[in-house]
């Protein structure tokens, strides 16, 4: 049984140059005053960078197929956690109920409600 997976060592310096260029893009994008551009510069670029590192530096594309799936499942559990918790922590008021007593006691929660 072979235990060696052969990795083609690509031109890592080129990948690194792309990553640095993306970093500059995201810093420049953050100076924009358009909210959408800032968000794309921040998180869109981060996703691309993470993909490049995972593919080219961690060689996840030539690893056994189930390894990326395993990591994706772990991310999925975090997504489930987020989906289950967000209705309570992210939203302070619903359509049919509110937390009036808490708003009186806690100024910051009231502040969040006002800004929604």
């Amino acid at each position: 049984m072979t235990t060696e997976t052969h990795v083609d060592h690509t031109n890592y310096v080129k990948i690194w140059a792309i990553l640095v260029a993306l970093l500059i893009v995201s810093v420049l994008g953050s100076m924009s005053h358009v909210r959408e551009i800032v968000l794309i510069a921040a998180f869109g670029v981060a996703l691309v960078k993470a993909y490049l590192v995972a593919k080219n530096f961690m060689h996840i594309n030539v690893e056994k197929r189930w390894v990326p799936y395993l990591l994706i499942v772990c991310l999925l559990f975090i997504a489930i956690l987020f989906a289950g918790v967000a209705p309570d922590v992210l939203k302070h008021n619903g359509l049919h109920w509110s937390k009036n007593p808490a708003d009186v006691l806690v100024p910051s929660a009231a502040g969040a409600t006002k800004n929604e």
């Binding site: 772990c74 918790v85 967000a86 922590v89 910051s108």
Partner: peptide, 28 residues
């Protein structure tokens, strides 16, 4: 190493998810 990374994903993931929820809930 892959399993360590998988378990680290949920540690950082839990903290990041908590942060993002609070951040969106608190525009201030």
């Amino acid at each position: 190493t892959w399993w360590v990374i998988a378990s680290e994903i949920v540690i950082f993931g839990g903290l990041l998810a908590s942060y993002i929820m609070h951040r969106v809930a608190h525009p201030e």
